[in-house]
Amino acid sequence: MTTFFDYDLAFSRNIGWVTETEQAFLRTRRIAIAGMGGVGGSHLLTLTRLGVGKFNIADFDVFELANFNRQAGASLRHVGQPKVDVMAEMALDINPELEIRRFSTGVTAENLNDFLEGVDLYVDSLDFFAVEARRQVFAGCAQRGIPAITAAPLGMGSALLNFLPGRMSFEEYFCLEGQPEAEQLLRFLLGLSPAMLQMNYLVDATRVDLPNHRGPSTPMACELCAGIAATQALKILLKRGKVFAAPWGLHFDAYRNKLAVTWRPGGNKNPLQWLGLWIARRQLGQHL
């Protein structure tokens, strides 16, 4: 069955929360998303339903059974298929007029320029443990004046940081340079989540295994990330409403019914962060 596609009709229910002029503007924007797994797939589909018309998406991985608890494209018929292709096709099923550039080798130093070419906004969806790739992408965004969003799935909530042109950079905030991997991962975790709302209900700390790149996750957190990140994307692209930029952040935890607005001047150099890092090293020491 062939169905005629009409962009204006397909996204008409957005109108009211955005104007027709704003919707038409979103149609012309290009968003880059690195990672099509836990949060990346949900980011792509949510932003597609918002009416964003162009994407650069990257991932080198394929879907497997271990992805089923949280990843939008993970299903039996997609096992073994490239994530970047599955998610592109799912997005095109929503809007067949999308312009999608696929980077099936992931984001690398060699293709970073192409990945960020013509991009209006970057939404971070790389695996938590992909520290070096993440540092490269955020540095590339800073050099090009591209706003960058990271919404991390933590427990049953989401921690948000925005890195905007002319404001504190990713590296200035997280202070990762020259640190061993375990310390970088810990600094990334604490920097994302200064409030650490999720630790209150972690029932099995042995599942947090940073050296072996494993940790627990929930589908609720990934979907919350997509909603929060898409809202920030709308505000940044349309220049509407207050946008928090690092060192300010937001952390909403649905399990604890809490919203924390965080502020860490100096990022991980802040004395409160040093204290938090010391406590985290003690609590997770056997898993680092």
Rank of each mutant, 00 (worst) to 15 (best):
Q283R: 10
A159E: 10
T206K: 09
Q232S: 11
R49M: 08
L76Q: 11
F63W: 12
I279S: 13
A182F: 00
F11G: 02
R49C: 06
L202R: 13
N162Q: 04
Q179H: 06
K83S: 02
G285Y: 01
R49Q: 10
D61R: 11
L259D: 07
K269N: 13
D127K: 05
G16E: 00
D253E: 14
L234G: 00
S75P: 04
G51H: 02
G106Y: 01
D8S: 08
N162W: 07
Q232M: 12
L112E: 08
L112A: 10
F244M: 06
S193G: 14
S169D: 08
Y255P: 07
A139M: 12
P211T: 12
L210Q: 10
M196C: 13
W263V: 02
M156D: 10
M1I: 09
V203R: 11
M168Y: 05
V79T: 15
E223Q: 15
R102E: 08
F63A: 03
G51I: 01
F188W: 10
A245H: 11
N212Y: 03
D61Q: 12
Q143H: 14
C222G: 14
S125Y: 06
I94K: 04
F188T: 12
I94D: 05
F128W: 05
Q136T: 15
G51E: 04
N212D: 15
R167L: 07
E64Y: 12
L26E: 02
E89S: 11
L189G: 05
T48R: 02
H213G: 09
R144P: 07
R13H: 03
A205V: 11
A72K: 04
S125G: 09
P153D: 10
V123I: 00
F60T: 07
V131C: 15
I279N: 14
T150H: 09
L190F: 08
D93I: 04
E99R: 03
P216K: 10
A139Y: 12
D6H: 10
I149P: 02
R281G: 13
E117S: 15
L161C: 06
P271K: 06
L47V: 03
L45A: 04
V79R: 10
R281E: 15
L186E: 05
V52W: 02
R187I: 11
K235P: 01
A221S: 09
Q71V: 05
T2A: 13
F63S: 01
V18S: 04
G191R: 01
L259S: 06
Q283Y: 03
A148N: 05
E89D: 12
C141K: 03
M87Y: 05
L50K: 03
T150Y: 09
I33S: 00
K83L: 03
F170C: 05
G241Q: 06
L185W: 00
L237G: 00
A133D: 09
R30A: 10
A24N: 09
G16D: 01
L275M: 11
L284D: 07
L176R: 06
A229D: 00
L224R: 00
